[in-house]
Amino acid sequence: MGRDLRPGWTTGACATAAAAAATAALFGGDFPDPVTITLPGGQQPAFALAVTARGDGWAEAGVIKDAGDDPDVTHGALVRARVWAGADGGGVVFRAGPGVGTVTLPGLPLPVGEPAINPVPRAMICAAVTAAAQAAGRVVGDLAPDLVVEIGIDNGEALARRTLNGRLGIIGGLSVLGTTGIVVPYSCGAWIASIHRGVDVARAAGLPHVAACTGRTSEATVARHYGLSEQALLDMGDFAGGTLKYLRRHPVPRLTIAGGFAKLGKLARGLMDLHSKRHAVDLDWLAGVLADLGADADLLAQARGANTALQVLHLADAAGLPVADRVATMARDVAVGVLGDAPITVDVLVIDRQGGIIGQAGGVADTHSPLPR
């Protein structure tokens, strides 16, 4: 019998705990270990300290991130906070330490040049260091202490290469993220949020054309085919609904949707979640598409008895039936319907596993023309 997946803590929660402990030590106390913080939802988890250090006018603490059972690239990373006195009246000022990135492109919820410590973690850290300063008798009332808080993540620059930070213009390391402080294993929220930030960055850059792709092969094909920059590529994955609904509210002039035959077949059926665990390929539906294209009874029977959508595609190709084009057209119709009145021109490309374009609808793509490899 399976067990429940174990939740974990966000990078922002770990940074908050480290900053609270470092602040207590800076103001003459011991490093509290474990250190307790308050999350936005009112939960009060305690974090063990992995490292502590003091110097002339500064204190530092570190927490090992535990992401629970989520496959988070930062699971096990050491999140550090070093604090020291800031300018009088300056309040809490944030710095990017080693392994934390800096914002270099507009469109994110932070100005260009700021450390990539998101607004909610900033608020959590401010509240935690203020509480520590109050406990030490260093501030009056709810005034924030005048502190510089530097957040770092060991090996963060290398870990960031496994994320979309570079595409979003976050250079030099990871982002300090989290809106609740809690990591929910295999949550869709983080992926969808990254899609939204990708749209925001593209819009802020004034890009006229973005591509929402289901995987790396389709992404590489679209980038080459249209000459799109990295900032124009949206890693949609299986989240067609989350992508299209956000674009409906935050439109760009042109959208290309690209993916494999099976996943775009699901979009063509009107499904917004393209994951294989949510929705299986509907072979009866694909047979119906072939029937509309004039397939005979024998081909329809073979299609209904096929093992995979790829097998259906091969059967259709052998019979000279443009099923990939038809799926592209139907997927485009669904996408246009979700986008509603948003002023977006849409085209769809169906990509094979070798990176060839095997079907299209809308736009000016050359169909059935694999890229040179």
Rank of each mutant, 00 (worst) to 15 (best):
Q43A: 14
N165G: 06
L310M: 15
V338C: 06
Q311F: 05
G62R: 15
T130A: 06
D33C: 08
H250P: 03
C126L: 06
A240N: 04
P253S: 15
D56Y: 03
A211Q: 12
P253R: 11
G97A: 04
E150M: 13
V83L: 13
G294K: 02
I358Q: 03
L39F: 05
P322D: 04
V63P: 07
D238H: 05
R161D: 02
P322F: 05
L299V: 08
V73H: 07
V139A: 01
A48F: 13
A87Y: 10
A306E: 02
Q302T: 08
G337V: 08
A59P: 00
A87E: 15
I125V: 14
R82F: 14
R216V: 11
T102V: 11
A232L: 10
E150N: 12
G356L: 11
G173I: 00
L339T: 04
T214K: 04
L108S: 00
V327N: 06
P185V: 08
R122N: 12
L164A: 15
D154L: 05
T217K: 12
M236N: 04
P251W: 08
D56T: 14
G172I: 03
G2Y: 13
H196G: 07
G97Y: 00
Q134W: 10
T11K: 07
R353C: 01
P45V: 04
V334P: 00
P111T: 01
L105C: 01
A262V: 07
R95D: 06
A116T: 07
M330K: 13
A17E: 13
G362A: 03
D146K: 01
V120P: 13
G62D: 11
R6T: 01
F94I: 12
